[in-house]
Amino acid sequence: MTTASPDFPDTIYAIQHLAFEDLGALEDIFYQLGFRVRYFEAGVDDLSKAFQHKGLTIILGGPIGVYETEDYPFLQQEIDLLKVRLKENLPTLGICLGAQLIAHALGAKVYAGHQKEIGWSPLSLSNTEHNLLAPLMDTPVLHWHGDTFDLPEQAELLASSAIYPNQAFAMGKNILALQFHIEVAADSLEKWLIGHTCELRKANISIPALRADNQRYAHAVEVQAQAVLQAYLQQISAI
């Protein structure tokens, strides 16, 4: 049974920037809640339908930066469509690059951070009323990014990490941006380790250690991610 109202669209639209960075564990949760999922490939598909969707649209991660519009012209169209979506306050969840795109579309600066943040570590949750990320308290989550962003004006900071102060924010009830990877699935991180091998080796990240931490922490994140997702869906379905 879905936790959304009967009038809330039952299809989740997900925009991918990299084939193996999909909805991961979130996809099964959506199916269990009675939703369908449709993917759009950034740079290949026309993203207009995804950004005009009245239900939930999720913008997933990827290795490019929001400022690389000259090399990846499709990014500018994506940003322009996202600006319209956010102005209309349509339900939008951004993960990693998706969070950076939301921050940029809201007028905040997105830029290369002072160091790569790749690995598992807990969040420091903001002391805000009804913090959607409360289930993740004391739960190590997967960080995998080099860029960071300033907090958009009027956004509510939800979480920080030891390395970067802005790890998650909300804009009202419908817009949620997560720099970390809440979608990671315990049984599929290996494709990330393969696909990102150049980045990992350049950053001197231990692949065996990442793999071991995935087995240690990912199952707990999957459980807590469901609680976060259900709370978010209950919140946005009132639109």
Rank of each mutant, 00 (worst) to 15 (best):
F8D: 06
K54I: 03
I59G: 02
G61W: 07
Q52A: 14
E41T: 13
I15E: 01
Q52L: 11
Q32C: 08
Y67A: 09
I15T: 02
P63A: 11
A19E: 12
E21R: 03
L26E: 04
E21M: 02
L18S: 01
F40A: 08
Y13E: 01
I58W: 05
Y72P: 03
L60A: 10
L23R: 09
D71G: 14
D28G: 14
D7K: 11
Y67V: 03
I58D: 00
E68D: 12
D22C: 11
F51E: 08
P63V: 09
H53P: 03
V37S: 13
T69A: 11
V37C: 10
G65V: 04
D10K: 14
Y31I: 13
G24K: 10
F35V: 01
L60T: 12
V66Q: 03
T57V: 08
P6T: 00
V66W: 01
F40K: 07
D28K: 13
E27W: 01
Y31S: 11
F20E: 09
I59W: 01
G55H: 05
F40P: 02
F40S: 07
T57A: 12
F35L: 09
Y31P: 00
T57D: 09
L33T: 11
L23Q: 11
G43L: 08
G65W: 04
T11W: 00
D28S: 15
P9G: 06
G65S: 15
G62C: 02
Y13R: 13
L23N: 07
E27L: 07
L56D: 09
T57W: 05
L23T: 04
L26M: 14
L26H: 06
P73C: 08
K54D: 15
E27I: 05
P9I: 10
L56T: 09
A14Q: 06
H17C: 06
D7F: 10
P63D: 01
I29E: 07
P73H: 00
G61T: 09
T69G: 00
A19G: 09
G34Q: 12
G34P: 07
D46N: 15
G24P: 10
P73S: 01
K54P: 00
Y39S: 07
T57L: 04
F51R: 02
I64N: 13
F20Q: 08
L18M: 15
D71W: 02
V44W: 14
G43K: 06
F35I: 03
T69L: 04
Y39Q: 02
I58A: 07
D28E: 14
T11Q: 14
P63H: 05
K49E: 15
G62H: 07
